[in-house]
Measured scan of single mutants.
Amino acid sequence: NSASGPLPDGWEQAMTQDGEIYYINHKNKTTSWLDPRLDPRFAMNQR
C-alpha cells in the first residue's frame, strides 16, 4: 500500500482480474483508481 492507516469508513479495496487495485466507495456506490487516503478532494470533504 502506498498509504498508511485504514481506509475511510465505507471504502473497500478490491482487485481486477488483471491484478490492478481499485477502491469501492459503498456510500456513494462509486469506484476509484485513486486511494481515498491520498486523494486531496476526499480529504477536504472529510473536514
Rank of each mutant, 00 (worst) to 15 (best):
L7K: 04
R41N: 14
I21G: 05
K27G: 11
D35M: 04
Q13L: 08
E20W: 02
D35F: 02
P36H: 01
D18C: 09
P6M: 10
D18K: 13
N28T: 08
N25R: 01
P6W: 03
D35P: 04
G5Q: 05
W11C: 03
Y23R: 00
A14S: 10
I24S: 02
P6V: 11
Q17R: 10
N1A: 02
M44K: 11
W33M: 04
T30L: 15
N28I: 14
K27T: 09
P36K: 00
H26L: 10
G5R: 07
G5F: 12
Q17N: 13
L38D: 14
S32K: 01
Q17H: 12
A43F: 12
N45V: 09
G5E: 12
E12D: 05
R37Q: 05
Q46N: 14
R47F: 09
E20H: 06
D35N: 11
W33L: 03
L38K: 15
W11A: 01
P40C: 12
A43K: 12
Y23P: 00
K29P: 02
N45T: 08
G5W: 06
N28D: 12
K27C: 12
I21S: 07
I24T: 04
L34T: 07
N1I: 04
M44C: 07
Q46G: 12
S4A: 05
W33G: 02
T16R: 03
N25W: 04
P8G: 07
Y23G: 00
F42C: 13
S4F: 08
A14C: 10
D9C: 07
M15D: 03
G10L: 05
P6E: 14
Y22P: 00
S2F: 12
H26E: 14
E12W: 02
I21M: 08
D18G: 11
A43C: 11
L38F: 11
L7V: 07
N45W: 09
P40Q: 15
D9S: 09
L7R: 03
N28V: 12
I24W: 02
P8S: 08
A3T: 14
D9K: 06
A3V: 15
M44G: 12
K29C: 12
E20D: 09
T31K: 01
P36V: 02
T31Y: 01
R41I: 15
S4I: 08
Q46S: 11
Q46I: 08
I21L: 08
F42E: 13
T30R: 02
D9N: 10
S4G: 12
